[in-house]
């Protein structure tokens, strides 16, 4: 799994690459957590906060953005940063997932929203799943 943060005039672009759809989604989750609080998920085993939700979306890219948006909402309503996702089911356009995290106290970055702009999941030459995601900060 590879996560990079790239410059954008007003916002932050995150590029994620992973060997499977589930790994891409979890990588994006960890990347967003790293933006909210740098290093928060590194070496953390105890993740006592759990949320469960299901989503449907028009396509896989929308499903990823909606997944991150849902986790971001819960970050603020539950006052926790989420680091791990366990998918009960995951397809092109729907998911049923448990996410795990812990209280974070203050944040390094306040993300307003996860945008659809420029996001497009594709496969690279190595058959890895890749996309960029722009966060409104």
């Amino acid at each position: 799994m590879k996560i990079e943060y790239l410059p954008h005039t007003a916002d932050v672009v995150m590029r994620v690459e992973a060997p499977s759809q589930a790994a891409l989604f979890e990588g994006a989750l960890r990347g967003m957590a790293g933006l909210l609080k740098e290093g928060f998920c590194e070496g953390t085993d105890a993740l006592p906060r759990e949320c469960h939700f299901a989503l449907t979306a028009p396509d896989t890219t929308c499903l990823l953005i909606d997944f991150l948006s849902e986790v971001l909402t819960r970050t603020y309503t539950e006052k926790a940063v989420f680091c791990k996702a366990v998918f009960n089911s995951l397809s092109e356009d729907r998911m049923d997932v448990h996410v795990y995290g812990q209280e974070a106290g203050g944040l390094d970055e306040e993300i307003k929203a996860v945008t659809y702009h420029g996001a497009h999941i594709s496969r690279n030459k190595g058959n890895h799943w890749v996309t960029s995601i722009i966060f409104d900060i």
Binding site: D66, S69, L72, T73, Y76, K112, A113, V114, Y116
Partner: peptide, 15 residues
């Protein structure tokens, strides 16, 4: 954050 969530909810619905 209230406004951020209103926009997120409705962009998703409009999609």
């Amino acid at each position: 954050r209230l406004g951020h969530q209103v926009a997120t909810d409705n962009i998703r619905r409009m999609m």
